[in-house]
Nucleic acid binder design. Structure first.
Lengths: 174, 174
DNA sequence: AAGGCCATGTAACAAGTTACATGATTAA
DNA sequence: TTAATCATGTAACTTGTTACATGGCCTT
């Protein structure tokens, strides 16, 4: 949030929440409520400060000098461990509890969704390259695309692992 | 948890927590406290039932018929959206706030950790193939390996995106 | 100027984490 | 048989989600 505020200037909670969704939402989620609560904390610590009250009691926050410093120090500490919860892996891991037909349907639907996501990323990359071309943004996008590529690859390999489940598909070449 | 309990039989909270770490910890985390709280809920709903009190007030839970059904229905509903929080992407995204040298160090350290992880997965795969060879388990492991492969690929591409940051590395071939 | 719809913020709940308490077990 | 350690469970706190309240804006 400090990073976002420092980049997009004075901004209220709602707008910040939206911007977060656009700017870092692909690899980090924040709900609106979290944003408001955290704004409070950041203000108490002197990392951000608010302008006058606007419509609907909204306030626009800016980062302070201490805030920039806090951001720097936080980044300087290095990244923490990532959190990955991939529910479809639970579906697979306990797939023996499902009817094969149902499991196949679920995976097909999942596959379709990933395809959409890959298209979204492709469009996003075009957009980014024509607009700002910031390497820091491009790097995060690149990660997203590689991740989706891995998912795609994984999906393509499933038939070889479950021959009975995908009878139409050829077994793996020896 | 229902899936785990049904597979590894009567088990107490502590042991279940450990097993979860081993069996699904690579793509799903559960703290011990969560396990205990959830055990309570599952028992209230009749999805699991406990044997007599053991040492230190421990109780071993087994899945009930309703529990199996609940597990089936839950899986049948299809996977929910995944949660991915990749802190290193924040480090990169806001990397402009860091000294280049520090950013490079952080990424080098990150890279080292991923390497360890790849080795861990490689060993795990050998183990799995010699022991049980369950395709459901192999499929989740395969995902892990592909994911780590994507991370590795991403790391290898960073120098091309940040030429000033990694001066030793060659720019991308045209 | 009244009704409906968005923008903004808040409150209540659920999930996740950290730190603690205490009963067994082992080793000196 | 006492001290140290480990196993098991619990409580307090933090973070994340869902549902709600309400004030301003736009349209007619």
């Amino acid at each position: 949030m400090l990073g976002l505020i420092s980049q997009i200037g004075p901004i209220n909670g709602n707008a910040l929440s939206q911007s977060a969704g656009i700017l870092i939402g692909d690899f980090w989620t924040l709900t609106r409520s979290q944003v408001y609560r955290e704004l409070q904390t950041l203000e108490e610590r002197g990392y951000i400060e608010a302008g006058p009250l606007g419509p609907r009691a909204s306030r626009e926050f800016s980062i302070t000098r201490q805030g920039v410093r806090a951001l720097h120090d936080w980044l300087d500490g290095g990244p923490s461990d990532e959190i990955i919860r991939f529910p479809v892996l639970l579906t697979i891991r306990f797939g023996a509890f499902l009817e094969p037909e149902r499991l196949r349907t679920i995976m097909a639907e999942f596959s379709r969704e990933r395809e959409e996501r890959r298209e979204y990323y492709a469009a996003l990359e075009v957009d980014m390259r024509t607009n700002n071309n910031d390497p820091f943004e491009l790097a995060t996008l690149r990660f997203g695309r590689l991740f989706e590529g891995a998912v795609e690859q994984w999906l393509s390999e499933l038939p070889a692992l479950f021959p009975e489940l995908f009878p139409g598909d050829a077994p793996p070449p020896a």
